[in-house]
Amino acid sequence: MQDERLASWLDGELDEAEAQEFLSSLSEAERREAWEFAAIAGTARRLPRPAPAEGFTARAMARVLARRPPRRSLWTWLRAPRLSPLAALGGAALVAAGAFGLAAWLDGARTRPGPAAHGQPALATVAHTQPPPATVLARLAIRAPQARQVAVAGDFNGWNPEAAHMRRGQAGVWILELPLAAGHRYEYMFVVDGQWVTDPQAPASVDDGFGGRNAVLQL
C-alpha cells in the first residue's frame, strides 16, 4: 500500500472519487488495514476532552496577576497595525448596515413565524415566535459552519452550556428555541467548540466583568 496515498486519505485530502479509487486499488488485506487506521483516527476525534476543573479561570487569573504586568516595547508599538480612518469609516458603515438589517428583520418577525420562512436562516438573532401570554419562545441562532458543538449559556440556565445545546440547521446555522419569561431581560453567550463568543448580532451587550461582553436579550 502506498503510504503517501493512505496518509492523504486519512487526512481527508481526497475527494469522494479519489477515495473510492484509492480503496478499490487495495487488496482485501490492505483495505482492512486502511480501515484500521481510519478507526484509530475516528476514535481519536471522539476521545473525551480532558476539561479544566471548576474554578480554573479564577485560579489561572490569580497566577497570571502574580506575574510582572506586561509592558509595550517601543519596537512592537511602532510595528503594530493601526486602524486607518478609511477602515474605521468602512467598519462603521458595516455596523450600521448590520443594525439596520437586524432591526428590519425583527420588525418583520412580528408578522411571520420565523426566519426560516424566508428560506434564509437568521444569523445570531433572536425572534419571538407564537408568544403565549406569560412566556415567549426565544430563538437564538449563530452561524458557525465548521463548529462541532454549539451551546448557549446565560442567566436563564445558570450559565451552564451543558444545559442548552444548539442543533445544527441549514447553512451551518445553529439554532435553539427557549421558552423564556416575557418582559424579562437576559444575558447570554454562545459557546462554540468550547470557546465563549458574544452574539455578533445582539442589539446590545454588557461588560461581563471578566474581559468579555454578554449579549443582552430583552423580551
Binding site: 476532552r49 476539561a51 479544566p52 480554573f56 479561570t57 487569573m61 504586568p69 471578566f210 474581559g211 468579555g212
Partner: peptide, 29 residues
C-alpha cells in the same frame, strides 16, 4: 483583550483565559 490588558486593564486578560483555557488544558493534559 490584549489591547485592554496592555492599557492597564489587567482583568481583561480573563477573557483570554476563558476563551482558550479549556483548549490549553486539553492539549497540555
Amino acid at each position: 483583550s490584549v489591547e485592554r490588558t496592555m492599557d492597564g486593564d489587567t482583568q481583561a486578560f480573563a477573557g483570554i483565559v476563558r476563551r482558550h483555557g479549556a483548549t490549553l488544558v486539553a492539549v497540555c493534559a
